[in-house]
Structure formats: C-alpha cells, structure tokens
Design a protein around this nucleic acid. Sequence first.
RNA 1: GGCGGCAUAGCCAAGUGGUAAGGCAGAGGCCUGCAAAGCCUUUAUUCCCCGGUUCGAAUCCGGGUGCCGCCUCCA
Length: 465
Amino acid sequence: MTVHLYNTLTRQKDEFIPIAPGRAGIYTCGPTIYNFAHIGNFRAYMFEDLLRRYLEFRGFAVKHIMNLTDVEDKLIRTCRETGESLKKITDFYAQAFFEDIDTLGILRAHEYPAATDHIPEMVDLIKKLRDKGHTYEEDGSIYFKLSTFPGYGALSRIQADALRAGASGRVDADEYEAEDARDFALWKAWDEEDGEVFWETELGKGRPGWHIECSAMSIKYLGPHFDIHCGGIDNMFPHHENEIAQAQCATGHPFVNYWLHCAHLMVDGRKMSKSLGNFYTLRDLIEKGLDPVAIRYTLLATHYRQPANFTFEAVEAAAQALCRIRDFRIRLAELDGDGDALADECSATESEFTHEMDDDLNISGALGVVFNFIRDVNKKIDAGVVGGDGAANALALLDRLDHVTGVFSPVAEDDVPQEILDQVAARQQARRDKEFAAADAIRDALAEQGWILEDTPDGARVKRA
RNA sequence: GGCGGCAUAGCCAAGUGGUAAGGCAGAGGCCUGCAAAGCCUUUAUUCCCCGGUUCGAAUCCGGGUGCCGCCUCCA
C-alpha cells in the first residue's frame, strides 16, 4: 500500500506520487496575522501538521511552507482603527501565532514567508502576466483577465458563467472597478484609506492583491510545479482557483498536483460565532484550564474532510484517553525480566496503523488500532507474560507513532518531591500495620496535593493528577 | 437562486454493498484491606425520515428534513 490522498482536483483518492522521488513539497495557506487565531483555524493547521508528520513517517523528505498574510484589507482596517503601524500589529500576532502552534505541538513549517517580504516577487509575477496579456489596468489597479484562462474553475468545478455579476443577487456589480465582476485584483492602487500601507513599485503606488502572494511565494520556495497545496475548504474558491490561474498563466507550467482541503470545525453543533458565544481562541481554552494535548487530540481525532464538532465533553474524553495512554506507558516502564517480546503485536499494530493512515490519513481508524494494541498488551501484562524486551518494544512503537500523532509521548517526568515520597512511605507502613484508616487518610491527603497513589503488586506508584 | 459537504449510541467518532471499529461516559463482575489502574461482560437488532435497486444497503438511486460551506480577500 502506498499513501493515498483525496485530491480536490480529481474528487477521488489518488495515490501520492511525488514529482521528485522521496520528496514532498507542501504549501499551506497560513493565517492573516491581525488577531489571535481561533480553534477552527487550528483545526486546519493540525490537519496539515498530521499530513506533514505522516509523510515524514513514510520516509518522505518534506518541505513545508506556510505563508503569513501580513497585508490585506482587514489588517489595514485594524491599522486605521487602532492607529498602530502595520508592522507593529503583524509582529505581535505573528508572535502569538507561533506561541499557539508550539502550545499545540504543531511542528514548525520550514519557512514562514510573509507577504510584505515578497513584494518584488509578486511584482515580477504580475509583470509576467501583464507581458503575456492576462491583465488590464483600471484606475491604477491591475486585474487578472479571467477570460484569458480557459481552465478556470477546474478545481472548484464552478462554471465561470455562473459567476456572472449579479446572478446571485448578492454581488453588487457597482462595487467592482473590474471589467467583469469575476476578475480579481493583482495589484491595488493606493487610496487614502490605505494610509501608510503602500509600496512604490514599477506597477505604481499600491499594494498586492490577496491571491498573488500565495502564487509568488509558493513558486519561490517550492518551484513552479510542486506536490501538495492545502487549505480550508472555504479557500477552494476563489482563492485557490485564482492561485492556479495566476501561476499557470505566468509560468506556463502545471502548478500543483494534489489539492487537499480541510472541512470546518463547529462548536456544540453550531457554527462558531461570537454572537452564539461559542467562539474560542486557543488562549480562551487554555484559560479555562483545558490541557493543550487534549485539545490537540480533539482537533486531530476527526478525519480532516469530515465536519468536526468541538465540545468540552469531547476534550474531557480526550483527556481521559490520554490518561489511558499515559498509564499504559507507566505500566510498561515498570516491567523488566524475561518474557514475551511482543514482536507480533508491535509489527501488526504498526502495519495496521500505516494501512489506515495510507487511506487519506484515516486518523480515527489509526487511533482505534493503537487502542486495540493497548488493550491486548494490558491483558498480557495482567497475565504476567510480558518481559523487559516486550515493554521496550511497545514503548518504542508508541514513540514511532508519536511522531505521527503527537499524542503518545510520555508526560514530562517531573521528579516526585521528597515530602511526597515520605508520605507514600508512611502510608506503606500504615498498610503493613493494617492501619487502613490512617493509610486512606494519607492517600486522601496526597490527592489534595495533586498526586494520585495507586497500589501495584510491586508497591505503590504515585503520579500527577 | 446556483454549487458542494455532512447526518452512525448520552458525547466524540471510524466504517462507502455482506451483516455496526475505537475513545469517553453509564451498568454489572474479577482483582484490591478499600480504592485506583487493568481485565471481562454489557449499553445502536440498527446507522435523520420515506420510497426504490439488490439474495443482501449505514453504505447505491430518487424524494424529503436538518446542519454546515462556497458563490465579495472567512481555516
């Protein structure tokens, strides 16, 4: 079996065949850094993280590029409203973004190109389009002339005719300076609402349109033709469609082989919105005391093309599932001596896990495989047949699979304080003396201090609550 | 109005023609001084509703209902 991915271009699961053997170039649409990202945003970044991690697990050398949109209408409006400079705002929220993805254990992309650092690349791309007759100018702005690209709509399967201005009753053609409402801006001429936000270029005084940054930066870092482009389903049209038009018309090459789109996240069965009171940034959830790893698990555990429902109950369930994994690791770590090496169980689990993930990243199925493994091995541990080799093999397997999921890693081993150990010893003495009331009192006291005490055949074990 | 997606137990969620994974929660049991952890049993005769195709459908087709997305720079 090889990796298969659902490709929006073909509307089916296609075998992943990279352009360069053993390598995978991935471009993912990143955040507009004008406020804190919400958990819906992070679901998309989590999916992209899983994709990147899994391809690495499968032996591909992945190059992952994520852009930062740091010039755009909403940002300029924020500048106007707050009086802050563009750079001050974007620096602040870029920093917050990186803190958030670190909190969630999302691996850093290899590059985070920012739009404003790539104005020359965008200008070059627009000039190429202009030279080839794909653009026209209107009041100092430059537009892409959609009628020059017959392939438009291949990704979203939207008929260009259906987009005619006013057909939906929602498009007010008067707002468009473009000749045709379907055309989109490559370069926007400065107007006074833009304030200090402008660049003096060969194209005039102004700023880039939104779509051009992704074409310019993906081409710069991954080449004119690369493997995978990801984003939220809402970016499929028009953003990704426009990217294709720009890139293919400018370079003359096919642009991207696999387009992957992530479904949206709902909260409590409703779309997330501030007016419903179910809109959360990651920081909101952390403040409520939720465990970041449990949040990671929750965002990860639903297949990426499935609309997911985020609930606090689900995060609690995830936290309990993580406890199960943690306790399993603790049991394994305590084993030594001769016994079953678990060779069959480990290899079967890894192979089934891989089989599930090869099928368009079926993480739910893959997690099910791991929990079946945990149950089966627990059974063997109960039977007393697992030896040190088996434990080491099982832990090594979890570590390998943790590279994919990021939720199987051991909890940070903080040393148990001596005073806690003293209380554990005192309880053990009380138990030996059959003074169970005293022993229970000590156990309760430990619980209040945040430590769970469990008796095992080999003695007491303490762990953080 | 046009296009697209989704609907599986109390909650989260796999499964896309062959008789319902997994996690959490609940119930009973084993183990334990008691717990915890672990294990066992159990919890959807049924997969939004109504028809149809088929020997057989959660899975395919038609119709309906609900939710969600795109159709103006929202993951």
